Amino acid sequence: MRYTFLLYSDPADFADMTQEDWAAMQEVYGAYIGALKEAGVFVDTDWLQPVETATTLSLKTGSRTVQDGPFADTKETLGGYFVIDVPDLDVAMAWAEKCPAAKAGKVEIRASAMGGA
């Protein structure tokens, strides 16, 4: 079963990070990706550009509506994701607990509606 981890954090938490801080964070995430790959559960990941670069589009009203930024006005924003393929939610939660994003923000776990690989 495929699960996507949606990684949420407060961008203010990263405002004062130095180049060394960023390098350390990349190392931690690199180790996490390595562990996922070694376990054979890694499918995909991406780190998203800051929320200020987002564009939200809707056709709900019958015509195109475009909004700069995210649709939701919240302090925490979606910063990236991981997709893994594991047997069940319990295993997915175990991997989510190991995700570095869980220590500073939140990891939303969503099962794929299309199943596994």
Rank of each mutant, 00 (worst) to 15 (best):
residue 5 F to Y: 12
residue 19 Q to H: 06
residue 63 S to E: 15
residue 1 M to Y: 01
residue 98 K to V: 01
residue 22 W to H: 12
residue 110 R to H: 10
residue 41 V to M: 08
residue 98 K to N: 04
residue 58 S to E: 07
residue 53 T to A: 04
residue 26 Q to L: 11
residue 13 D to T: 13
residue 53 T to K: 02
residue 1 M to Q: 06
residue 24 A to M: 09
residue 26 Q to Y: 08
residue 97 E to Q: 15
residue 99 C to Y: 00
residue 115 G to E: 00
residue 28 V to K: 06
residue 35 A to I: 02
residue 83 V to N: 09
residue 87 P to V: 12
residue 82 F to C: 14
residue 37 K to D: 10
residue 17 M to V: 04
residue 51 V to D: 03
residue 18 T to R: 00
residue 51 V to H: 02
residue 97 E to D: 15
residue 64 R to S: 07
residue 84 I to P: 07
residue 45 T to V: 14
residue 11 P to F: 05
residue 41 V to R: 01
residue 67 Q to P: 07
residue 37 K to C: 05
residue 40 G to L: 04
residue 37 K to P: 04
residue 60 K to T: 10
residue 69 G to P: 08
residue 102 A to Y: 06
residue 49 Q to P: 02
residue 37 K to F: 03
residue 88 D to Y: 01
residue 81 Y to C: 13
residue 89 L to I: 09
residue 15 A to N: 09
residue 10 D to Q: 09
residue 93 M to R: 15
residue 100 P to N: 01
residue 107 V to E: 01
residue 54 A to G: 03
residue 49 Q to M: 04
residue 37 K to S: 09
residue 52 E to S: 06
residue 106 K to Q: 15
residue 29 Y to R: 09
residue 29 Y to I: 06
residue 112 S to H: 04
residue 45 T to P: 12
residue 7 L to K: 11
residue 73 D to I: 12
residue 111 A to P: 13
residue 50 P to Q: 03
residue 69 G to M: 10
residue 35 A to V: 03
residue 26 Q to E: 11
residue 103 K to W: 11
residue 117 A to S: 15
residue 26 Q to N: 13
residue 102 A to L: 11
residue 23 A to Y: 04
residue 13 D to K: 15
residue 39 A to Y: 02
residue 59 L to Y: 09
residue 17 M to D: 07
residue 108 E to H: 02
residue 82 F to G: 12
residue 51 V to Y: 03
residue 99 C to V: 04
residue 50 P to H: 03
residue 93 M to E: 14
residue 105 G to N: 07
residue 75 K to L: 08
residue 112 S to A: 12
residue 85 D to A: 11
residue 8 Y to G: 05
residue 54 A to Y: 06
residue 56 T to C: 05
residue 86 V to W: 00
residue 34 G to S: 01
residue 31 A to H: 12
residue 39 A to H: 05
residue 68 D to A: 12
residue 94 A to Q: 12
residue 110 R to W: 02
residue 79 G to R: 04
residue 96 A to S: 05
residue 101 A to M: 15
residue 81 Y to H: 12
residue 98 K to R: 14
residue 70 P to D: 07
residue 97 E to H: 15
residue 104 A to I: 15
residue 68 D to L: 09
residue 78 L to V: 08
residue 93 M to Q: 15
residue 21 D to L: 02
residue 107 V to W: 00
residue 84 I to V: 15
residue 44 D to G: 06
residue 63 S to R: 15
residue 40 G to E: 01
residue 85 D to M: 11
residue 106 K to L: 13
residue 49 Q to C: 01
residue 76 E to D: 14
residue 59 L to G: 11
residue 19 Q to T: 10
residue 112 S to I: 05
residue 4 T to S: 08
residue 32 Y to R: 02
residue 21 D to V: 01
residue 55 T to A: 03
residue 25 M to Y: 13
residue 102 A to K: 06
residue 88 D to I: 03
residue 78 L to I: 14
residue 96 A to E: 00
residue 113 A to S: 11
residue 26 Q to G: 13
residue 99 C to E: 00
residue 9 S to G: 11
residue 87 P to E: 13
residue 71 F to M: 11
residue 12 A to G: 03
residue 5 F to T: 01
residue 2 R to H: 05
residue 31 A to V: 07
residue 10 D to N: 15
residue 22 W to S: 08
residue 42 F to K: 09
